[in-house]
Each structure stands twice: as structure tokens, then as C-alpha cells.
Design a binder for these strands. Sequence first.
DNA 1: ACTTGATAGTTGTATACTGCAACTATTACT
DNA 2: AGTAATAGTTGCAGTATACAACTATCAAGT
Lengths: 149, 149
Amino acid sequence: MENARELFQIMTRRFGLLNKFCCTECGCDISLVQSHILYEVNRQHHPSMQLIAGILGTDITTFSRQVQSLVKMNLMKKTPDPSDRRVYTLSLTERGACIAASIDKQMTDFLNDVFSTMSEEERDMVLRSIALMNEAMAKSDKCCRPLSH
Amino acid sequence: MENARELFQIMTRRFGLLNKFCCTECGCDISLVQSHILYEVNRQHHPSMQLIAGILGTDITTFSRQVQSLVKMNLMKKTPDPSDRRVYTLSLTERGACIAASIDKQMTDFLNDVFSTMSEEERDMVLRSIALMNEAMAKSDKCCRPLSH
DNA sequence: ACTTGATAGTTGTATACTGCAACTATTACT
DNA sequence: AGTAATAGTTGCAGTATACAACTATCAAGT
């Protein structure tokens, strides 16, 4: 039980590095943080800025500037919400979606490669475990509270 | 299989946030990166700077400055290696070890809390799965190559 | 309608983080 | 001895981060 923390730490670090690597490798150079933004905006349906900033745990002011960069890079759109004019709605441009897909593909390729050394049962077990972890973490409010989903 | 990437992304993000949260909550305010350094220096036996920088995937120059900060904060020691005078050996001070332990405890507490909502078998499955993943990722050299262990 | 309070997002500013290039010091190789 | 490789440090320029203070809009109570 003692080594649970170690197991997760190593895995998380490795995954973070992979993520970073995929960002630079996918053709267009974007930062890790930016890739997380693209990823999450892609997942949500026309989210507000507060939502994404909250999910990613970054300060709204920092996030505001990140969005400005991404808009300037033509990867994201910021549309005023007609029902509440304080709110801006985020979405990916075609180019942004393309890059998000490219990163996605690289990550999936890598995962497939990793899983290729496992048996079918092991693979299923791992995926079920991660899903279980995510559910359990969502339930626990002891420590990490932001994050929807 | 498609959602493997999603599962890992969410989990990794959540864990990263938790990690960051624990840093600020543990009494002494250190950054996430600094906590990773403390963690890894603690794990290794008198590692060199190159080693830790490599494991964490940070540029050696950035790392050099991070170490300077941590030394100034009295959390780390930098000892010249007598067998190779180019090399500096890293270790935690008492205070550094204390803070590392404090973060460790918080993370472990959180994990215990998360696991408390699972059955014994589920818990074992999750831990076995993560261990399996770490091994499999270590084997695969398709993408992420730094990282010992 | 008007005031008050809350919310979404932006900008000023100061600080920290990051990595490339260029450097010093030491070691390894021939 | 001389050359190449390695460990680590600084100069520098660009980026990221978050607190404080701001504008603009909405929501609620009177």
C-alpha cells in the first residue's frame, strides 16, 4: 500500500512527459498547457472560459491570456454567448481540431504500442482499473476538488 | 480502446492537480516542479544533477537553477563528488526530507481515501494494473525515452 | 426603475519558469 | 600533450503564472 503513491507518481510523470513530447512532435509547436486546453475544449460542448479554467485548475487570468494566444494562433474561437453577454464560448477552429486530433493519434498510437506487450486480459484489467480510479477520485472530495467529470 | 487515451488523460490531470495542491498545503510553499525534484532526489541514492534532470525531462540549465533555489531554501544539498569533480551529488536536507515526507503523507492519505470506496479485490487490481502499465511503458521506446525506472 | 451584489472576463504588474547559446572546469581518449 | 566529450553554470529572451484592480453584464430585492 505504501508504494501506491510511488506507482501513481511514476505513471503520471511518464504520461506527462509523453504528452509534452507529442506536442512538439505533432508538427505545430504548442505547449503542454495549450494542448490540455485544446483537449478539454474539444471534449466539452461550447464551454465557457470559467469552465475550462476550472477543470484545468489554472487561474482565470492566466487562462484568459492562454486563450488569447490560441486565438491568435488560429487554433481556437471565442464566441460571445448571446444569452449572457458576459460569457464567451470556446470552440476549436478547423486547424485547432486538426492539431488536437494529431496529438490524440500520437497518444493513442503510443498506448497501443504499450498495450501490445500485454495479454488481452491484462489490457482489459488496466482499462477497467483506470476507469475505476477516475470514478473513485471523482467521489472523494478530500483533497482535489476542481475538475468536472 | 478509443477511450484509453481519455481515461489516462483525465487521471493524469487529476493526479497532477492533487500533487500541486499538496505542495501548497503542506506548510511550506513549493512549486510542483520543486516537489517532483524533492521526490526524485529522495528516491535515488545521491544522484547527479544530470540524472535527475533527465528523469524529470527538464533542461539541465533550468534544473541547475531550480537546484540553486532549493539549496537556498535549505531543502537540498549539493555535494561535490570526490571521484569526479565535474559532478555534484544531490541529497535532501533534514528540512527537505521533512517536507517531502509531508507531501508524501498527504498523497498517501488521499489515495487511501480513494481506495476506501473500493473493495479489496478492486484495490489490488488497480495497483497491479498501474504496476503493469509502468513496466509496459518502460519497455516501449516508441515515444517517451527519458526516465529511468 | 434603482440599488446592491455577484459573476465573466480583461489588463497591470511583478515574479518565476523555461531553454538555447555560450561559457568554465574537469575527465577520457589517443 | 592534445583533442573530444561531459557536468554544470550564466546571459539572455521569451513565456507562464497569479494577485490586485478594473469593466461589463446579469440577478435580486425593494
